[in-house]
Amino acid sequence: MRRTVIAILSVVFIAFSLAVIGLAQDHSAEEVFYRANQAYKQGDFTQAAQAYGQLIEMGYANGHLYYNLGNSFFRSGQEGKAILMYERAYLLMPRDADLLFNMNYVKDQRVDALQEGQGVLASTFFWLNSLNLAEFYRVFVICNLLLFTALILRLFMNPSWMPPLIITAAFVWSAVAGSVAMKWYQVNFDDRAVVLEKEMDVLSGPQEGDTVLFRLHEGTIVYEERTEDQWVLIQLSADKRGWVRAESIEGVRM
């Protein structure tokens, strides 16, 4: 009996401690967020960027924080990092009007005149950019629920409208499941990277002395192919490929 009481008390204590730690962490995050916002308002954009970055490292990685971080980088004159953060924010909140406005504005400031493609996956399955991955999960859960509810009802009743309903539900379920898989692939295998340097030479090989093939400027989006030591093979288009130093670019994938 005594042992049971001790055990219950121990469980209650641990749960309470975890809740307190969680609350403390939440309070800490809110404080950091407040400080970051204040720094941004006062024009200390470097400080603001550090604070937003800290929040992301703490696990609060959401579209708003990446958006704020992008703004802070842009204000501090780092257009490349700003575009990188906006691209990450776009994966998380693709319909946010502020983000779309700022991203277009900052991309307009880039030096390189390049037509930015959406990629084969996103242009073929155009609806992939309408929702983020979490929203796709929710839509899938709803479709899953509807399909199996219809199948369960089919076991008990079989009116004439049931077969077309099940076929339609199965079709929608398959389409949504496919979309979830493609979106998951798009987010987790995103090979885009953003140029962070003001000006960057693209070489014919992974060595300093190799021929300069072409020159890119800050904010341009390239596609990473493979990495060797501290060098990355990038592709801009079918006829524009070359090697750059790894620290000159940063991948969009989070």
């Binding site: 995050a29 967020f33 609060y60 708003h64 958006y67 802070s72 504005y105 983020n132 987790n188």
Partner: peptide, 19 residues
């Protein structure tokens, strides 16, 4: 110019949902 930051406390919620 760019539009301002999102400073509401509710903007802290939500996660990455990579998987």
């Amino acid at each position: 110019d760019i539009l301002p930051n999102h400073t509401s406390m509710k903007d802290l919620s939500g996660g990455l949902y990579r998987t």
